[in-house]
Design a protein around this nucleic acid. Structure first.
Length: 213
DNA sequence: ACCCAGGTGGCCC
DNA sequence: GGGCCACATGGG
């Protein structure tokens, strides 16, 4: 375990960049609402295929209307109001429905995120994947970052790292996820930190544009 | 004016 | 089970 390329890469990146902090936004997180879990879960959907900056504009719009809340979104009888709020994050015709589907799933099946967090990890992941608009990356992002569950997130940067290091070529999402998990200590903090470092490193490389948030 | 950003579902073969 | 494509915005 300690002498493998993946874990080694983690140690290298941590050496180079330090431990990443404030990877996710927490500008309005509170004990009650919105909780950090809510912000990250909702943010994970908003940030699909867009910059964090744009997702943040949408989060702020939701906050302003008191809709940065799993419960409040689940209660909506009409999603039109979400369209304008979500607009800066792009895909405003699909993201409101995705938010609603996710939020009503949580409320109906578990009541709240804290309860969902107690669900068996594999079952929780499978259930998230049945929702329209939540694919493997978003499901794992919600589980890892919003709910602090040990599941590794695979994104373009991670795939690139695997390819460049000759760890794996064109392999499936799940294969790569298991490869990383097999070669790392099963610790939430390490999964979170490593994935964050992979993105930080990836953004810094040539051909990539460094964006500040 | 073009290109990209912490994806996903639908379609095709 | 992969290979495309549409979806849409803000910023470089």
């Amino acid at each position: 375990m300690a002498s493998n390329k993946i874990y080694q890469r983690y140690l290298e990146l941590r050496e180079k960049h330090g431990s990443p902090e404030k990877f996710w936004p927490q500008w309005c997180a509170s004990k009650k609402s919105p909780t950090l879990r809510e912000i990250i879960a909702i943010g994970a959907i908003l940030t699909q295929r867009t910059t964090w900056h744009n997702a943040d504009l949408a989060l702020r719009n939701l906050k302003k209307e008191g809709l940065l809340s799993v419960n409040k979104i689940a209660e909506l009888s009409n999603l039109n109001c979400l369209t304008k709020l979500v607009q800066p994050a792009g895909f405003y015709q699909t993201k409101p429905q995705r938010l609603f589907d996710f939020c009503s799933f949580i409320v109906k099946e578990y009541g709240n995120l804290e309860n969902f967090r107690k669900e068996d990890l594999e079952i929780a992941r499978e259930k998230l994947l049945t929702l329209k608009g939540i694919g493997p990356e978003t499901a794992d992002t919600i589980l890892l970052y919003a709910l602090d569950r040990p599941t590794f997130v695979i994104d373009e940067y991670t795939k690139r790292l695997a390819k460049r290091r000759g760890l794996a070529g064109n392999v499936s999402y799940d294969y790569l996820k298991e490869l990383f998990e097999k070669n790392l200590p099963r610790e939430v903090k390490i999964y979170q930190g490593f994935h964050a470092l992979i993105i930080i490193e990836g953004k810094g490389e040539e051909g990539s544009i460094m964006r500040k948030v």
